[in-house]
Design a protein around this nucleic acid. Sequence first.
DNA 1: GACAGTTAATAAGTTAAACTCACTTATGAA
DNA 2: TTCATAAGTGAGTTTAACTTATTAACTGTC
Lengths: 252, 252
Amino acid sequence: MSASARPQRIRSRLSPDERISKILATTRIMLSEKGYEHLFTAEIAERCGISEATIFKYFQTKRELLTRVVEQWFEELNTEKTAPAKQSVRQQLKQLIWENFATIRREPALSRFVLMELRADPAYKSMYIYQLNRQYNSRILRLLKEAIASGKFRGDVPVRLLMNIIYGAMEHETWAFLRGEGNFDAEAAANGIAEVIYRGMLKPSASAKRKQPVSDNAASAAADKEMPAASSRKPRTVNRTAATPAKRKKSA
Amino acid sequence: MSASARPQRIRSRLSPDERISKILATTRIMLSEKGYEHLFTAEIAERCGISEATIFKYFQTKRELLTRVVEQWFEELNTEKTAPAKQSVRQQLKQLIWENFATIRREPALSRFVLMELRADPAYKSMYIYQLNRQYNSRILRLLKEAIASGKFRGDVPVRLLMNIIYGAMEHETWAFLRGEGNFDAEAAANGIAEVIYRGMLKPSASAKRKQPVSDNAASAAADKEMPAASSRKPRTVNRTAATPAKRKKSA
DNA sequence: GACAGTTAATAAGTTAAACTCACTTATGAA
DNA sequence: TTCATAAGTGAGTTTAACTTATTAACTGTC
């Protein structure tokens, strides 16, 4: 076999931007497939059809590469705005929580990486991903602030605490799923969380409208209209990526 | 200097139990000092005055060693029971949450390890630490169940969800601290979480006792009486330690 | 269409830290 | 005193992230 056997190095030689895109895209797919702890730079390189050294030409560390992947993901998420749909606060809250669950379900590996690795990073708050995360959370934040400002919600609980309750609850509802223990009921969970928060925050005076029907199924399906503008707050002076390398990185 | 210079190998040669105890104790101290990502088996060995190989004689992996450390910690925590103090549900809830915060503050590094590493382990639910964690949580769980059973709390929200809300909230309130960004206000956070949960769960009918004074400071200081027995549920068929090695562990 | 300068890409390393194994030696029982 | 047992270790191996010296693909110039 092999008539004209020339090993012929058909090296592709892309522009940095193209190469970086390709590495990021491949990494994202592989991260979803294998999960963080089973993802190796050597394999990423192989799948990209390049050498490992090339990856490290464009990314200082493996961690930086993964962080960039997650940043891209969040940028996507922050683009696809959903409808603010004139609903009750109660329904909006549930809807936003449900959407958050949907995001986690769509990308378990990426979510896991954020929760496990990035959030615990000592430099987290100075990372770009922190800003992106804030932006992602801003819809719920705005809803809560408005509900308080308008007098529907009580003013004696800090919004920050409310956010922590809501996001903490979502994460906890989600851990078994992220561990690979099967699906979770986003509908029920979103409803439950929204319910407790809503009832816990409703102003006593506002309970003229007594005994609302607590059930509220359906209303899932993520809508996709535009939102005014409002949330185009730019990251302040934040390192794009660049956090603690934490691992190795000798001779810095 | 050095009159009778004899290198003299004063090898200690302890019994397995003693050696294991010493390694565990040393590891716990070092984990608190350095944190998980900067803790190396070589250093642990050095501080124990033994060779690295000895550590691996008694612990299959570094992860197993750390897991054992955390198990011991939880066993301690589950022993030091605090007073059930006949207080209102609202006050008990706050108190228990506050105690949980106090535990995290006392051992940030151990807490971080549990939250970051163990909880995300695919085998988490079959690990001994999962049982210990359940036992640790059982006080809040019991409180909630009783509040529901007695009719004080509504019955339309699953206790599991309530637990997730409470523990999720605590974790989120705690992350900045665990990242090393300074202290947190356990008093305020415990009060806020208890407040939202309590109001969110209170049965409408029970609001005859209208407008309770919401403030409720002090009441911190962990008491330390005994509790009946009640929570001596044995771990079912659960591996002591033994989870996914996840890293290395070749030629298994 | 040869030449040179630039820079994408890589082969062949190095390093760190978890883990292994063949061997050594303290100890206690006979 | 001897010897079996098992605690302990020195000197590895392995793996996967990261480095560096070098090669060669492309670009513009004449």
